[in-house]
Design a protein around this nucleic acid. Sequence first.
DNA 1: TTGTACGCGTTATCAT
DNA 2: ATGATAACGCGTACAA
Lengths: 342, 342
Amino acid sequence: MSIKEVARIAGVSTATVSRYLNSPEHVREKTRKKVQEAIRSTGYAPNTLARNFRRGKTSLVVVVLPSVGDPFFEGVMRGIWRVADAEGYSILIRETQFNTHEFDDYSEIVFSKQADGIILLASTSPFTSGPAERAGHGDRLPPIVIGCETVAPQLSQFPSVRVDNAAAAAEATAHLVQLGHRRIGFIAGLQASLLTRDREQGYRQAMAEAGLPVADEWIVEGRQTLDGARAAARQLLALSPRPTAIFCANDEMAMGAMHEIRRAGLRIPQDISVIGFDDIRYAEILDPPLTTVAQPTEEIGEHTMRRLCRAIDGGDIGAEPEIVPHRLVVRESTAAPPADES
Amino acid sequence: MSIKEVARIAGVSTATVSRYLNSPEHVREKTRKKVQEAIRSTGYAPNTLARNFRRGKTSLVVVVLPSVGDPFFEGVMRGIWRVADAEGYSILIRETQFNTHEFDDYSEIVFSKQADGIILLASTSPFTSGPAERAGHGDRLPPIVIGCETVAPQLSQFPSVRVDNAAAAAEATAHLVQLGHRRIGFIAGLQASLLTRDREQGYRQAMAEAGLPVADEWIVEGRQTLDGARAAARQLLALSPRPTAIFCANDEMAMGAMHEIRRAGLRIPQDISVIGFDDIRYAEILDPPLTTVAQPTEEIGEHTMRRLCRAIDGGDIGAEPEIVPHRLVVRESTAAPPADES
DNA sequence: TTGTACGCGTTATCAT
DNA sequence: ATGATAACGCGTACAA
């Protein structure tokens, strides 16, 4: 009973107060003053619950990501928020913690109208059944945009914003090849993650193009975590002959790998080169500063959110991926292999 | 027109469908079956907007923190989510980006019923005017619980969950003193942050207790960022004589400081010791592994959220801070000062 | 330009 | 155990 109260005090109808709130230009100056004063004196704030209900919109968007506290997502989230604030959306964050969630979990959120749309920053195969065949909801899919992740065939019906992971990974690998490396290890993410699979593919492709073989044991899964990467690095270092360079599917894993390399008494890059992916803020203060592939994170976030907004507003945003530019950042963790290796 | 639809198909009233949803035990087995079938066949999902509206609850909680992508908050958020999931709440995250926001921004969220409560993980003086004097809302303050941050007098009306920052900082400082350090620098966070002020106070207290003087230039503001800490470290290293140890108000800043120390050609801990605060996941893989103060982050998150839930449910949770235990983790970044310094 | 009156989907109250 | 119905606060035809 609140807009009523304001209306009563202002001596106008509830409709006028509502109009004052939503289209002030349709209210006469004089009336506007009265309403304004009534609102001020009562400290009235529209009940968002009622408003959402009436409008059929929550102005909420769910962002699904593997893990907050991952420095990489800081920039992406910042971009998302910038647009969200401007467009009046609030962001609900769900962590997958690397678990393969049911797609239903997320679409349910939309179908039960808890959110207007979903941004998937981590699509570790979120689909159990084809989303299109969901019982009951018919053909109306919730607005979804995928950020960062590579889109697998099953996800190709959704738009995405990302770098060309395969090309970027190939570029990184080529950088090592050019320095003279021939045995290059690869610490992959989770196999369930399409993104790291693409990076692995880029690595394989670059190796092939250089006419270099890729031994099976050169590719180890680092599970996207510090500890996983450390175990993976230990495996690679135990190889004989061991790789002269290691390409890590992201910077977090590169940090873990570098630690193990140091512990093994090896020097970076003199004994072994390391290259990462993402260019998180720690990359440049590592010892030595990490060569890596930078992604325009804020841009990804902004474009992803903007595209989602358009989809929510009913616009047709297509299903094509939007590819944003990556950039190889050469620092000091990569160099030519030891002399006796050439 | 959806619960109606289900009711029509099941051949019962809307009230019965509603009851089936909310208190099935009050529905006869036979009726239950009918409703269940109708729901299944229609793929009906209750409209959360309408439900929230009716119940006057959003089941949303806002968490305010300085920055996602900060590894420290990963654990805290995890604890919060664990409880939130169990209690049926979703989490809305707002970043302060170290800006001093108006308290109104946040309380507005509650007063306009966009959320049921607020968790403040970063209270850089969020109050412009005393919250109690807010016009309109009278004396009814929104449910708020503060996590991690130290409570300043103006915030003492709110409950909090945190470690004893002053005591922990004193302990860390004492550790350096015991190793033989006499000139200990301190890289502080933002002066606006109560938390880092408390840590500074603990540092000062420990120095005083050891009978050691604290030169003004030994305390430098690191602005809670990598870059800020780097600048601060450069300042400290330029001092003559320079400190033989540096206490950083958090691990993030310690990372920045360590980088600058290396760049200056100094060895840790042989030439200079470094100690941090938080024990983020990178602490143990730094070079050398960082001595720091560990906080039970998940526990903080869980307790904070649990307390907020009780407050939302109308329980009286008091205003006393709940102090959780910290733990000094000694690794390899601290050692006795160079021989000629004793 | 302003007011009246209805409906949004759900839950809660009260009969039955 | 179930059904009829009144709210909840807001937006918006439509009428004035």
